[in-house]
Every structure is written in structure tokens, then in C-alpha cells.
């Protein structure tokens, strides 16, 4: 039987992206879906202003609730992050995030030299936590207008996913929007272009350094039900898994690290089947190596 041409993970990523962005007519009409499904957030970074999007973006929603005059804390989003984070951790990043998939595809574009790591790589990974606290939480909460409403600062000044998934398709198909673009649009377009260029050079730069959603799920990686396990009896310490890891962590010494997006590359890299993953309560793992 012919082999399926793309990996299981890429298949899940692609199917999920298409399913959660299935409002195809939106792309042609330059409009967005306005139905009840948008009550619910999708787990990954998926702009709710993407014409195809059927769900809400958790980071946009968090800013919307924190910035509203009515609420100053969001139990709905807190509960959402606790549930998804405890069950999956950053498995969301590896499997269920359209913007993660886009960056991975961009990284597939050949270039003379890809950058695996550089001097400030590790310290810069902390930047996303700062962005989460300042742009997603504090600024929308405390910088408010006369009506007590705050702006979604991360969406407005940083998020390239919003520009790519929402801004570009909507502005290119909607003449009314074209007539009002100004500095902010060009600023966000510039951030998007830098993100695209960097994604060709570096594996998932937005996920590594900027994404506040990845930062939230990272906090659950150590305890999430879906987790990795290294069988110390099988591991020979050859280091092949570490070389295979696109996030540049050591699956053996740093199992379930904050930066682990559960992509499974390390499992494939290990010749001794020492690394397994799966859903398990407690740290014991009955997962598979495949």
C-alpha cells in the first residue's frame, strides 16, 4: 500500500486548521463568521478576524474580557487555560495551532544556512512571558478610556497572526477597509514580514520568543496529562534525540521542558525506543514510541 505522503502530525495540523477555519465563503466575501460557535475558543492561536475562523482566539478573548468595563478578571478564560493546559500542555503547539503550522511550513523553504541556535537564544525565550504579562494582561486592564474599556494591546501592536489571518485577507477583499488603512496597518505588516523572514531561517521564532499563548501552555508542561517519558534503562546517552529536537532542548535531561512542543521528533531520532509519550495520570508513562 502506498505510504501517506505527509506525517501523522502534519496531517492532524492541516486537518485541524481547515476544520477550524472552514467558513470558506468568508474569504470570498471579505466577511467573517458571526455564528454561535464563536462562543468557544479554539486551543491554538487562530485569529477570530480570520474570514474562515469558526471559533475564537483565546488570547484575543482574554484581552477582550480583561479590557471590558464589566469584568476585571476572566474566569472563563482561566478555566479554559487550566483545562486545556492540564490535559495537553504544549501538545496544542505541536498539533493544534494554525500559526505554528504556518511557521513550520515556512521553515521548509530552503535557505543557504538555517540558524539552529545563537547566543541569546535561551534568554530570549523568556520574552514571551513578559509579553503575556504586559501586553495581554496589564495594559488592557489598566490603560482604559473614559468608558473604562482597554485595548487589546497584543493584538493591536504585535500579533502577526492577526495580520496574516485577518488583516491581509480582509483588507485585500474589502474596499471599505482599504480606504482606512494607515500607520498601524503598515507597522503590523512590517512585523508580519519580519516574522515570515525569520521563520525561513529559524524554526518557529514566534513560538520560541513571542507567543503569549505558548507561554501559558508551557506553564503546564511539567504536569500535563499528555507527557513524555524517557526510559533510563534503554537510553544510552547518545544525544541523537537532542540533535533531532527543533526547539533545542534535551529530551533526556529536560523531559517535559517548558519549551517542548510535543512534536515527537526526538522519539523518531532515538534508535533505542527510549522516549515515549502518551496520556498518563501521574508521571508514569504508558505511551507509545511511534
Amino acid at each position: 500500500m502506498a505510504k501517506w505522503p505527509i506525517s501523522f502530525r502534519k496531517t492532524v495540523q492541516s486537518v485541524w486548521t481547515v476544520l477550524t477555519n472552514g467558513y470558506i465563503v468568508g474569504f470570498f466575501r471579505g466577511k467573517i463568521y458571526t455564528g454561535k460557535l464563536k462562543n468557544m475558543c479554539v486551543p491554538g492561536l487562530n485569529c477570530y478576524s480570520c474570514p474562515g475562523s469558526l471559533g475564537s482566539c483565546p488570547i484575543g478573548s482574554l484581552q477582550a474580557v480583561l479590557g471590558s468595563a464589566k469584568y476585571k478578571i476572566s474566569f472563563y478564560l482561566l478555566g479554559f487555560f487550566l483545562l486545556i493546559g492540564t490535559l495537553l500542555g504544549r501538545l496544542v503547539c505541536g498539533f493544534l495551532c494554525p500559526f505554528g503550522l504556518i511557521q513550520e511550513l515556512l521553515y521548509k523553504i530552503p535557505f543557504i544556512k538555517k540558524i539552529r541556535t545563537f547566543r541569546l537564544d535561551r534568554p530570549l525565550r523568556w520574552l514571551k512571558y513578559g509579553i503575556l504579562v504586559v501586553f495581554v494582561m496589564l495594559l488592557p486592564l489598566f490603560i482604559v478610556d473614559a468608558a473604562g474599556t482597554g485595548s487589546p494591546w497584543f493584538c493591536k501592536w504585535i500579533c502577526p497572526a492577526g495580520t496574516l489571518e485577518g488583516g491581509v485577507p480582509l483588507v485585500s477583499t474589502n474596499p471599505a477597509l482599504q480606504s482606512v488603512i494607515g500607520f498601524l496597518f503598515h507597522w503590523k505588516l512590517a512585523i508580519l514580514l519580519v516574522t515570515i523572514l525569520l521563520s525561513i531561517l529559524i524554526y518557529r521564532p514566534f513560538c520560541k520568543y513571542i507567543c503569549p499563548l505558548g507561554a501559558i501552555y508551557a506553564l503546564f508542561n511539567k504536569v500535563s496529562v499528555y507527557r513524555y517519558h524517557v526510559d533510563q534503562e534503554k537510553c544510552t546517552g547518545c544525544g541523537k534525540c537532542e540533535k533531532a529536537c527543533p526547539m533545542q532542548i534535551s529530551p533526556v535531561r529536560e523531559t517535559n521542558h517548558l519549551e517542548c512542543i510535543r512534536c515527537g521528533e526526538c522519539k523518531g531520532g532515538c534508535s533505542f525506543n527510549a522516549i515515549t509519550s502518551g496520556f498518563s495520570f501521574g508521571s508514569k508513562n504508558k505511551g507509545k514510541n511511534s
Binding site: C47, Y48, K156
Partner: peptide, 17 residues
């Protein structure tokens, strides 16, 4: 609040607001 934000085009997200 989530629904109301999500069913109107978010001008901040797309770089206009």
C-alpha cells in the same frame, strides 16, 4: 463578551483600529 468581540471584525487585530 467573547462572542461580541469575535463576531465583529476586530479592527485592532487586522491593524486598523
Amino acid at each position: 463578551t467573547v462572542l461580541m468581540k469575535a463576531i465583529y471584525i476586530c479592527l485592532e487585530c487586522i491593524g486598523i483600529g
